[in-house]
């Protein structure tokens, strides 16, 4: 389980996040500017909290009291960004394989096939990211994060940059992912419908603070 108790000043704005995740999808829900993405970045190791502690299943990722700050590349926390962030100079296949390569894992063709089938991205492997539609790009980004075999997956508004039709296209894949992989996920969103459909646990945020935590029923 993810356990977060972290504080970070960003100019005049302070994020103070205290919450735990569960084994399923934990949604960080709140209006834009409520600190959701900053919290995801702290869990990923892209920004360091000023103080606090972040641990996953007992492994300490960050602890200011002990002076521990595991760098992002050593955390094995997958991250799907709102804007995809595929590497434009690499083919889809090389993008997908990047995390396995960087973490020094053995090639796992079964897993590769499984993930590309799950996301229906097999036919795209030879293409470049520049030649993909927005929905295809997000599916590849999902696959890329999964294939590094993370212990936790962060999804930062993965649907926000897509139009309604593309959202409908991706949503079933997210559900499949949740049901198929059993991977704990943190899902950042400001859309109650998305959260209701996907999450098992909700952390409500406003102005950088956690205002409530509980099941999806706390959304209404």
């Amino acid at each position: 389980m993810l356990a977060v108790d972290a504080e970070k000043s960003l100019g005049a704005f302070t994020v103070k996040a205290v919450f735990t995740g569960d084994g399923g999808i934990t949604a960080l829900f709140g209006p834009s500017g409520s600190g959701k993405t900053s919290i995801a970045n702290m869990v990923a190791g892209l920004i360091a909290p000023d103080r606090g502690r972040i641990a996953f299943n007992g492994d300490v990722l960050f602890d200011s009291a002990q002076g521990i700050n595991l760098p992002a590349h050593a955390r094995r926390v997958g991250y799907v960004f709102q804007d995809g962030r595929l590497f434009p100079h690499l083919s889809v296949a090389r993008n997908l394989d990047y995390g396995r390569w960087m973490t020094g894992q053995q090639r796992d063709d079964t897993q590769f096939k499984h993930v590309t089938d799950l996301l229906d991205i097999g036919p795209l492997l030879k293409r470049r990211p520049g030649a993909l539609s927005g929905g295809e790009r997000q599916r590849v980004a999902l696959g890329r994060a999964l294939l590094m075999k993370p212990r936790l997956l962060l999804l930062d508004e993965p649907l926000a940059s897509l139009d309604a039709a593309r959202k409908r296209e991706i949503m079933p894949y997210l559900e499949r992912l949740r049901d198929d992989t059993g991977l704990p996920m943190i899902y950042v969103s400001h859309d109650p419908a998305e959260v209701r459909r996907l999450a098992s646990r909700v952390v409500l945020l406003d102005g950088g603070r956690v205002t409530a935590t509980g099941g999806v029923e706390i959304l209404s």
């Binding site: 990923a44 892209l46 992002a72 050593a74 997958g78 962030r85 590497f87 960087m102 973490t103």
Partner: peptide, 27 residues
């Protein structure tokens, strides 16, 4: 070079040296 791509490489396990060699320099 878009630093957000470098961040993405970090989350995928690329150490700073590898990140430079595989993302920053090619771009």
């Amino acid at each position: 070079v878009d630093r957000r791509l470098e961040d993405a490489a970090s989350t995928l396990g690329a150490s700073p040296a590898w990140r430079f060699a595989t993302v920053t320099l090619p771009l």
